[in-house]
Design a protein around this nucleic acid. Structure first.
Lengths: 130, 130
DNA sequence: GCGTTAGATTGACATTCGTTGAACTACTGA
DNA sequence: TCAGTAGTTCAACGAATGTCAATCTAACGC
């Protein structure tokens, strides 16, 4: 049980709740999200929202900015990207190319590398060209 | 709270436990993992292992094969990949391109997740120039 | 058959999680 | 200064989670 594993699982755990996943998705749309918006869009009370945003903050997923008496949250996308990198090590393969297009579509299991960490990983990694 | 969100959070929740994340990582190395191996490598009792593998199965992350009186688990990488796709929608951007190159640059700020130190993934982690 | 082994299920327990009302803090505007 | 507002923190609660000993089931070897 490595130290890095603890960090990754903390982020996973933070994402593993419908309400928090909802919050993260809303934040991905706007550059910054007011707390009041969450109160309007989420079916839970104010303390509960505070509780969830705290967990997201502790996991490093969001950043809090206080302006006057209003709070604004923003998504730390680099944390999501690091997590994706780590997942990619476990399941390497070609990935989405464009966001508006249909993607690669052929998620169809081209022979996956036996070991996620093989020495020739670079060959398949070179396939990632977005 | 869409249905697809529920599915995603279920997978996240499954990954959000150190022991289960450890199991998934072990599975990523081998093509198929014997249950007995887990008993040797994990610091928990047999029922607990059974409990965790069940959760991973329900989340769709692993597949179970029974041969004789032995059980073999294998990682369903496509589930991991669709999860990455979904995360990529929230944090799009260039990704890992080559192993010896310096990555994409905007990822090179600082370790957002705690670095893997001294475990078996450290070598491959060097691929990620975060 | 019969004992053994691999692993799942069950039941019980302690811990953690998610939720809320109430109280609190900090800022606003008059 | 003082009432009102935004959001947090606190205390408490029920629900879910993680763990293990005991039990069960199915396959094995003899």
């Amino acid at each position: 049980m490595t130290r890095e594993a603890v960090a990754a699982t903390e982020v996973f755990k933070a994402l593993g709740d419908p309400i928090r996943w909802n919050i993260v998705q809303q934040m991905a749309q706007q550059e910054e999200l007011a707390c009041s918006v969450l109160e309007d869009t989420l079916p839970v009370s104010k303390p509960t929202i505070s509780y969830h945003t705290k967990i997201l903050t502790q996991a490093g997923l969001i950043e809090v900015r206080k302006r006057g008496r209003n709070y604004f949250y923003s998504l730390r996308r680099e944390v999501l990207r690091s997590l994706m990198d780590e997942m990619w090590l476990l399941a390497p393969g070609p990935r989405l190319v464009s966001s508006d297009g249909e993607g690669t579509g052929d998620r169809a299991e081209r022979p996956v590398l036996k070991a996620a960490v093989g020495d020739d990983t670079s060959r398949s990694a070179a396939l990632l060209t977005w």
